[in-house]
Write a protein that binds this DNA or RNA. Sequence first.
DNA 1: AAATCGGGCAACCGCGCGCAG
DNA 2: CCTGCGCGCGGTTGCCCGATT
Length: 307
Amino acid sequence: MGRPPCCDKANVKKGPWTAEEDAKLLAYTSTHGTGNWTSVPQRAGRLKRCGKSCRLRYTNYLRPNLKHENFTQEEEELIVTLHAMLGSRWSLIANQLPGRTDNDVKNYWNTKLSKKLRQRGIDPITHRPIADLMQSIGTLAIRPPPAAGAAPPPCLPVFHDAPYFAALQHQHQQQQVVTHVDADAPASPDSQHLQLNWSDFLADDAAGHGADAPAPQAALGQYQEGSAPAATAVVGGGRAFGDVDGASAGVGAGTDDGAGAASAFIDAILDCDKEMGVDQLIAEMLADPAYYGGGGGSSSSELGWGC
DNA sequence: AAATCGGGCAACCGCGCGCAG
DNA sequence: CCTGCGCGCGGTTGCCCGATT
C-alpha cells in the first residue's frame, strides 16, 4: 500500500551541511538536474541526508543564480508592498525577487523589515499605523447573530467568533491597507490624513533621518491616507485586492517586462482567493446587519461595530 | 580576557494538498 | 476508494558570531 518511505530516518544526518556534502549534491544536480529528491541522497554519492533536506539545501543555498548579497532598497520596497497585499506567502513574494528564496525573504522580513516598520509606528501584520490599530481595537465590538425574535444582545468587546473575526480582520485590513501610489488616480474622498513613506524608513539607516534622503525612484509601498496630491489606490472594497492593473504597475516597477508578469501573478492570486470564496465570504459578512449594521460600509466607522 | 547578550541565518518541523500504488 | 508518501510551504528552532559589559 502506498510508496516506500523516502529514507531511513534513523540513519539520516541532521545539522549543518559540510563542503563535501555540498559538492556531492551540486555535482549530482548539475548533471542530472532536480526532481525525484527521494533518490538524490543515494544517487548523489551516498549522502546520509533525507531527500527533503537535500531539496532545502539546494533551493536555499546551492541553486544557481542565487543572490547572496544584501537586499537592495528596491527589493525591500517590493517585499513590503507584496507583504501588504499577500501577507506571509513568502514563496509568492520570493517569486517576484530573482535570485532570492522564500527563506531569504522570510528571514529578512522577520529580522529587519518588521522591526523597521514597528519602529516607525506601522504594524507589520496589517500595515496600518499602530495608533490607528489601537483605536480600532478600542472601539471594536462584534455582536453574535441575534436569535429570531430575541432582543439584540449587549455589545461586548469580546471576539467570540474566531472565524468571523478572522474574516473581519481580513476584510478590514484589505480596506485600509495602501499598497501603492498611482499619481493618475483620483484621491479617495473619504480617506483620512496621514502620510508615511516607506522610503523614509530605508533612508534612516544611512542618514539617521528620512528628511535628508533623496526621493526614491519608485514610490512603492507608500503608506498614505488622505487627499494628498499623489492619489492612492486602496485595496479592497468588495474585491480581494482592489485595482489589479494599478497594483501590477507598482509591483513591476523597475523592470521592462515586470508589469506584465506581475499582473499575471496578481491575477493568479485573485483567482485563487476567488476560488476559495474569500470575496464571497466578505460580501456575505458585509451584507449581514447582525454583524456590521449592513450596507457594506467601507470604513470602520460605518461598519457598526461600536456601541 | 571572559562572560553575556542579541541579531542573523541555515536548517528543521509540521501541515496541507496532490497523487501513486 | 483508501492509504500513505512526495512535495511545497510557512513557522520555528538552534547555532554561530559580533557587540557589549
